[in-house]
Amino acid sequence: MLIYFNEQLIHVAPELRLFALREQKKPHADLLIINGYPVSEDQALKENDRVVLIQRGEQPTAAELEQLMMARHTPGVHEKIKNRCVGIAGAGGLGSTIATALTRVGVGHLIIVDFDLVEPSNLNRQQYFSDQIGLPKVKALQENLRRINPGIKVTAIQQRIIAENLSNLFGQVDVMVEALDAAEQKAMLTSNFLQKFPETPLVAASGMAGFEASNSIRTRKVAEGFYLCGDGTTAAEPGRGLMAPRVGIAAHHQANAVLRLLLGEKPE
Protein backbone atom coordinates (compact mmCIF):
# COMPACT_ATOMS: atom_id res chain seq x y z
CA MET A 1 0.00 0.00 0.00
CA LEU A 2 0.94 3.67 -0.34
CA ILE A 3 1.42 6.03 2.58
CA TYR A 4 2.94 9.46 3.03
CA PHE A 5 6.04 9.29 5.18
CA ASN A 6 7.35 12.75 6.14
CA GLU A 7 5.29 14.07 3.18
CA GLN A 8 6.88 11.63 0.69
CA LEU A 9 4.67 9.00 -0.97
CA ILE A 10 6.20 5.57 -0.31
CA HIS A 11 5.29 1.90 -0.83
CA VAL A 12 5.05 -0.19 2.32
CA ALA A 13 3.87 -3.71 3.10
CA PRO A 14 0.12 -4.07 3.54
CA GLU A 15 -0.98 -3.90 7.18
CA LEU A 16 2.35 -2.41 8.25
CA ARG A 17 2.15 -1.18 11.83
CA LEU A 18 3.34 2.20 13.10
CA PHE A 19 6.10 0.87 15.36
CA ALA A 20 7.41 -1.37 12.56
CA LEU A 21 7.62 1.67 10.26
CA ARG A 22 9.49 3.56 12.97
CA GLU A 23 11.93 0.65 13.31
CA GLN A 24 12.59 0.78 9.55
CA LYS A 25 12.80 4.52 9.05
CA LYS A 26 13.70 6.32 12.26
CA PRO A 27 14.21 4.07 15.31
CA HIS A 28 14.92 6.97 17.69
CA ALA A 29 11.78 8.93 16.79
CA ASP A 30 9.75 9.73 19.91
CA LEU A 31 7.09 11.95 18.37
CA LEU A 32 4.73 9.99 16.11
CA ILE A 33 2.06 11.83 14.14
CA ILE A 34 -0.63 10.17 12.03
CA ASN A 35 -2.88 12.39 9.91
CA GLY A 36 -2.15 15.39 12.08
CA TYR A 37 -2.71 13.64 15.43
CA PRO A 38 0.16 12.83 17.80
CA VAL A 39 -0.21 9.18 18.85
CA SER A 40 1.55 7.02 21.43
CA GLU A 41 0.01 3.56 20.83
CA ASP A 42 1.10 1.18 18.09
CA GLN A 43 -1.51 0.73 15.39
CA ALA A 44 -2.05 -0.63 11.88
CA LEU A 45 -1.47 1.91 9.11
CA LYS A 46 -3.99 2.43 6.34
CA GLU A 47 -3.67 3.38 2.66
CA ASN A 48 -2.89 7.14 2.23
CA ASP A 49 -2.12 7.72 5.91
CA ARG A 50 0.22 10.65 6.53
CA VAL A 51 2.88 9.63 9.00
CA VAL A 52 5.53 11.95 10.43
CA LEU A 53 8.24 10.63 12.75
CA ILE A 54 10.32 13.11 14.68
CA GLN A 55 13.06 12.88 17.27
CA ARG A 56 12.63 15.41 20.06
CA GLY A 57 15.37 18.00 20.34
CA GLU A 58 16.39 17.54 16.72
CA GLN A 59 16.08 20.57 14.41
CA PRO A 60 13.18 19.59 12.13
CA THR A 61 13.16 20.16 8.36
CA ALA A 62 10.67 22.71 7.00
CA ALA A 63 8.22 19.93 6.04
CA GLU A 64 8.52 18.29 9.46
CA LEU A 65 8.01 21.63 11.20
CA GLU A 66 4.85 22.25 9.21
CA GLN A 67 3.55 18.81 10.20
CA LEU A 68 4.45 19.39 13.82
CA MET A 69 2.69 22.73 13.98
CA MET A 70 -0.31 21.34 12.08
CA ALA A 71 -0.54 18.54 14.60
CA ARG A 72 -1.04 21.07 17.38
CA HIS A 73 -4.04 22.68 15.67
CA THR A 74 -7.49 21.25 15.25
CA PRO A 75 -7.40 18.98 12.16
CA GLY A 76 -8.60 20.77 9.04
CA VAL A 77 -7.74 24.25 10.33
CA HIS A 78 -4.29 24.34 8.76
CA GLU A 79 -5.56 23.37 5.29
CA LYS A 80 -8.12 26.19 5.37
CA ILE A 81 -5.75 28.97 6.39
CA LYS A 82 -2.41 28.17 4.79
CA ASN A 83 -3.35 29.80 1.47
CA ARG A 84 -5.09 32.84 2.95
CA CYS A 85 -3.84 36.41 3.28
CA VAL A 86 -4.42 38.81 6.18
CA GLY A 87 -3.56 42.53 6.14
CA ILE A 88 -2.41 44.17 9.38
CA ALA A 89 -2.34 47.98 9.59
CA GLY A 90 0.02 48.86 12.43
CA ALA A 91 2.79 46.85 14.13
CA GLY A 92 2.44 48.15 17.69
CA GLY A 93 0.95 46.47 20.76
CA LEU A 94 -2.02 45.14 18.80
CA GLY A 95 -0.43 44.47 15.41
CA SER A 96 2.74 42.74 16.62
CA THR A 97 0.71 40.50 18.95
CA ILE A 98 -1.93 39.66 16.32
CA ALA A 99 0.82 38.89 13.78
CA THR A 100 2.53 36.58 16.28
CA ALA A 101 -0.69 34.64 16.96
CA LEU A 102 -1.55 34.34 13.25
CA THR A 103 2.01 33.21 12.50
CA ARG A 104 1.85 30.52 15.17
CA VAL A 105 -1.49 29.25 13.89
CA GLY A 106 -0.12 29.20 10.33
CA VAL A 107 -1.98 31.82 8.26
CA GLY A 108 -0.09 31.60 4.96
CA HIS A 109 0.54 35.26 4.15
CA LEU A 110 0.60 38.38 6.34
CA ILE A 111 0.95 41.91 4.92
CA ILE A 112 2.12 44.18 7.75
CA VAL A 113 2.43 47.95 7.31
CA ASP A 114 3.84 50.47 9.81
CA PHE A 115 6.10 53.53 9.37
CA ASP A 116 7.58 53.54 12.87
CA LEU A 117 10.80 52.36 14.55
CA VAL A 118 11.09 50.20 17.69
CA GLU A 119 11.45 52.48 20.73
CA PRO A 120 12.28 51.60 24.36
CA SER A 121 8.73 52.53 25.48
CA ASN A 122 7.29 49.92 23.09
CA LEU A 123 8.81 47.02 25.01
CA ASN A 124 6.18 47.20 27.77
CA ARG A 125 3.63 45.54 25.48
CA GLN A 126 4.91 45.00 21.95
CA GLN A 127 6.48 41.81 20.59
CA TYR A 128 10.04 43.16 20.16
CA PHE A 129 13.36 42.66 21.95
CA SER A 130 15.57 45.28 23.54
CA ASP A 131 18.31 44.61 20.97
CA GLN A 132 15.85 45.63 18.22
CA ILE A 133 15.50 49.25 19.42
CA GLY A 134 15.95 51.59 16.46
CA LEU A 135 14.99 49.04 13.79
CA PRO A 136 11.92 49.59 11.61
CA LYS A 137 9.11 47.75 13.42
CA VAL A 138 8.03 45.84 10.32
CA LYS A 139 11.59 44.56 9.72
CA ALA A 140 12.07 43.53 13.36
CA LEU A 141 8.67 41.84 13.39
CA GLN A 142 9.32 40.05 10.10
CA GLU A 143 12.51 38.59 11.60
CA ASN A 144 10.75 37.54 14.82
CA LEU A 145 7.93 35.89 12.87
CA ARG A 146 10.42 34.06 10.61
CA ARG A 147 12.09 32.64 13.70
CA ILE A 148 8.73 31.39 15.02
CA ASN A 149 7.41 29.89 11.78
CA PRO A 150 9.56 30.03 8.64
CA GLY A 151 6.75 28.35 6.70
CA ILE A 152 4.63 31.48 6.22
CA LYS A 153 5.15 34.52 3.99
CA VAL A 154 5.42 37.94 5.66
CA THR A 155 5.33 41.07 3.50
CA ALA A 156 6.74 43.92 5.61
CA ILE A 157 6.17 47.45 4.34
CA GLN A 158 7.57 50.50 6.13
CA GLN A 159 5.13 53.20 5.11
CA ARG A 160 2.58 55.59 6.56
CA ILE A 161 -0.95 54.42 5.76
CA ILE A 162 -3.22 56.98 4.11
CA ALA A 163 -6.54 56.68 2.29
CA GLU A 164 -4.76 56.92 -1.08
CA ASN A 165 -2.41 53.93 -0.64
CA LEU A 166 -4.89 51.50 0.95
CA SER A 167 -5.78 49.71 -2.28
CA ASN A 168 -2.13 49.18 -3.22
CA LEU A 169 -1.20 47.91 0.23
CA PHE A 170 -4.19 45.79 1.12
CA GLY A 171 -6.18 45.22 -2.08
CA GLN A 172 -5.56 41.43 -2.08
CA VAL A 173 -6.27 40.48 1.55
CA ASP A 174 -8.97 38.02 2.68
CA VAL A 175 -9.39 39.72 6.07
CA MET A 176 -8.20 43.18 7.14
CA VAL A 177 -7.01 44.10 10.64
CA GLU A 178 -7.00 47.63 12.06
CA ALA A 179 -4.21 47.76 14.67
CA LEU A 180 -3.35 51.46 14.72
CA ASP A 181 -2.98 53.73 17.74
CA ALA A 182 -4.71 57.12 17.26
CA ALA A 183 -8.53 57.20 17.16
CA GLU A 184 -8.48 59.36 14.00
CA GLN A 185 -6.21 56.88 12.20
CA LYS A 186 -8.37 53.95 13.27
CA ALA A 187 -11.52 55.61 11.94
CA MET A 188 -9.76 56.73 8.72
CA LEU A 189 -8.49 53.23 7.94
CA THR A 190 -11.74 51.50 8.83
CA SER A 191 -14.10 53.75 6.90
CA ASN A 192 -11.87 54.00 3.82
CA PHE A 193 -11.17 50.27 3.70
CA LEU A 194 -14.80 49.23 4.16
CA GLN A 195 -15.96 51.78 1.59
CA LYS A 196 -13.43 50.52 -0.98
CA PHE A 197 -13.75 46.81 -0.14
CA PRO A 198 -17.25 46.23 1.25
CA GLU A 199 -16.92 42.46 0.65
CA THR A 200 -13.75 42.07 2.76
CA PRO A 201 -14.31 41.83 6.53
CA LEU A 202 -12.34 44.15 8.82
CA VAL A 203 -11.50 43.53 12.50
CA ALA A 204 -10.70 46.68 14.49
CA ALA A 205 -10.01 47.47 18.15
CA SER A 206 -11.11 50.28 20.44
CA GLY A 207 -10.70 50.56 24.21
CA MET A 208 -7.97 48.44 25.82
CA ALA A 209 -5.93 50.86 27.98
CA GLY A 210 -5.37 50.57 31.73
CA PHE A 211 -6.04 47.56 33.93
CA GLU A 212 -9.84 47.37 34.01
CA ALA A 213 -11.40 43.90 34.21
CA SER A 214 -10.44 41.52 31.42
CA ASN A 215 -14.03 40.51 30.77
CA SER A 216 -15.06 44.02 29.74
CA ILE A 217 -13.23 43.39 26.46
CA ARG A 218 -15.58 41.89 23.89
CA THR A 219 -15.87 41.16 20.17
CA ARG A 220 -18.91 42.76 18.54
CA LYS A 221 -20.28 43.11 15.03
CA VAL A 222 -20.95 46.84 14.73
CA ALA A 223 -21.74 47.20 11.02
CA GLU A 224 -21.77 45.06 7.87
CA GLY A 225 -18.36 43.33 7.66
CA PHE A 226 -17.04 45.43 10.56
CA TYR A 227 -16.06 43.70 13.80
CA LEU A 228 -14.83 45.64 16.83
CA CYS A 229 -12.84 44.25 19.77
CA GLY A 230 -12.24 46.07 23.05
CA ASP A 231 -14.32 47.71 25.77
CA GLY A 232 -15.19 50.57 23.42
CA THR A 233 -14.42 53.34 25.91
CA THR A 234 -11.08 53.04 27.72
CA ALA A 235 -8.78 55.41 25.82
CA ALA A 236 -5.04 55.65 26.31
CA GLU A 237 -4.49 59.01 28.04
CA PRO A 238 -2.22 60.62 30.64
CA GLY A 239 -2.61 58.53 33.80
CA ARG A 240 -3.97 55.50 31.93
CA GLY A 241 -1.34 53.75 29.88
CA LEU A 242 -1.35 50.81 27.52
CA MET A 243 -0.06 47.63 29.11
CA ALA A 244 0.74 44.15 27.86
CA PRO A 245 -2.08 42.17 29.53
CA ARG A 246 -5.08 44.14 28.36
CA VAL A 247 -3.67 45.13 24.96
CA GLY A 248 -2.83 41.44 24.55
CA ILE A 249 -6.41 40.43 25.39
CA ALA A 250 -7.81 42.82 22.77
CA ALA A 251 -5.18 41.70 20.24
CA HIS A 252 -6.06 38.05 20.76
CA HIS A 253 -9.77 38.86 20.43
CA GLN A 254 -8.82 40.31 17.05
CA ALA A 255 -6.63 37.35 16.09
CA ASN A 256 -9.37 34.86 17.01
CA ALA A 257 -11.94 36.92 15.08
CA VAL A 258 -9.64 36.74 12.04
CA LEU A 259 -9.22 32.98 12.47
CA ARG A 260 -12.97 32.49 12.77
CA LEU A 261 -13.63 34.59 9.65
CA LEU A 262 -11.05 32.54 7.70
CA LEU A 263 -12.79 29.35 8.86
CA GLY A 264 -16.21 30.68 7.83
CA GLU A 265 -17.45 31.25 11.38
CA LYS A 266 -19.06 34.37 12.84
CA PRO A 267 -16.48 36.17 14.99
CA GLU A 268 -18.84 37.54 17.62
Binding site: G90, G92, G93, L94, G95, A179, L180, D181, A182, A183, E184, K186, A187, T190, A204, A205, S206, G207, M208, A209, V222, A223, F226, L228, G232, T233, T234, A235, A236, E237, L242, V247
Partner: peptide, 10 residues
Protein backbone atom coordinates in the same frame (compact mmCIF):
# COMPACT_ATOMS: atom_id res chain seq x y z
CA UNK B 1 -27.30 54.98 11.07
CA UNK B 2 -24.57 53.22 12.98
CA UNK B 3 -22.10 55.67 14.54
CA UNK B 4 -19.03 53.86 15.82
CA UNK B 5 -16.71 55.88 18.05
CA UNK B 6 -13.02 54.95 18.20
CA UNK B 7 -10.86 55.73 21.22
CA UNK B 8 -7.05 55.84 21.08
CA UNK B 9 -4.70 53.01 21.99
CA UNK B 10 -3.06 50.09 20.29
Amino acid sequence: LELIQFVGGG
